[in-house]
């Protein structure tokens, strides 16, 4: 356990640069988005009042109130989120391949550590999941800050004040990132952890058998996809809708746990006996 914690702390130290950079990037671009949307809105109101000789009330009537939704559904907000997701996906591969392709072949030292080799797998998995959840948590704190600044920038008659949580729930994409209850967070990010575990196994297959390993990794991904889709497919195609939705979800969760366990067993075997350095 102690060795696992040390390894995990080591991985956190390595990912922290990326993580803090992403946090700064997200906050900066989204704040620019807040200022830009407010500036654009004020410009429209001003031009209506000066060029079209409208009163403030007429201009407001024509343009409508400004709400934080305008910021949240713009690319200034969603862009940094997509980039962060892309960065984390890239890091899932980097977290392993850097051990082979860095300045020194660091994998030698990792494999020689006086601990179970599967701890390397677990520490990397925990790092990815915790880093992702940290970015999600930070995004919410950033939203609160951005919303406060937005409310301070827009003067009262023009402001349509909306709760950030309500805005999150209205957008299907953002509400997938922020499930509205603890069970949702555990389910969505738990499933994410299973997928990361499968990708790690695929990477280790490649690192163990190289070209042949790529074929094995693709085959493994296909088998996993079929297993995860099986509760839905079997219910629709063979059982004619016999299972209730709750039962399908439960079977899916069992399948996902099974996939994670199989991934751990295969990865342990590969790390102990087959890995090439």
């Amino acid at each position: 356990m102690r060795n696992f914690l040390k390894l995990t702390n080591f991985e956190f130290n390595r990912i922290s640069k990326l993580l803090f950079s992403l946090m700064g990037f997200v906050l900066l671009i989204q704040l620019i988005g807040v200022f830009f949307e407010v500036w654009m809105y004020n410009n429209r109101i001003d031009s209506l009042m000066t060029e079209n000789q409208m009163t403030e009330a007429q201009a407001l009537n024509q343009v409508g109130e400004l709400s934080f939704a305008m910021v949240m559904y713009s690319m200034f907000f969603l862009g940094p989120i997509f980039i962060s997701v892309g960065a984390m996906l890239f890091y899932i591969f980097l977290i392993w391949y850097r051990e082979w392709f860095g300045k020194n072949t660091f994998i030698y030292r990792l494999l020689m550590l006086p601990t179970e080799r599967i701890n390397i797998f677990f520490s990397k998995l925990v790092t990815i999941v915790v880093a992702t959840l940290t970015l999600v948590g930070f995004q919410f704190l950033a939203l609160l800050i951005e919303n406060s600044i937005f409310n301070a920038l827009v003067s009262d008659p023009f402001l349509s004040e909306m709760n950030v949580v309500n805005l999150i729930s209205q957008d299907p994409l953002i509400s997938m990132i922020f499930p509205h209850s603890l069970d949702g967070i555990l389910l969505v990010y738990g499933f994410g952890a299973v997928i990361v575990g499968v990708l790690f196994t695929a990477i280790l297959l490649e690192r163990s058998y190289r070209i042949k390993g790529i074929a094995a990794a693709i085959l493994y991904a296909i088998v996993v996809s079929a297993l995860l889709a099986s509760p839905f497919a079997v219910n629709e195609l063979l059982l004619n809708g016999y299972m209730y939705p709750g039962e399908i979800l439960f079977t899916f969760a069992v399948m996902a746990l099974l996939v994670l366990m199989v991934s751990i067993v295969i990865s342990r075997k590969l790390l102990n006996d087959k890995i090439r350095v």
Binding site: F12, S16, L19, M23, V130, A131, L133, T134, V136, G137, F138, Q139, F140, L141, L144, I185
Partner: peptide
């Protein structure tokens, strides 16, 4: 990292 996670998700 853990503090941001707990405070962010908690709030």
């Amino acid at each position: 990292v853990l503090t941001v996670l707990v405070v962010g998700i908690g709030s």
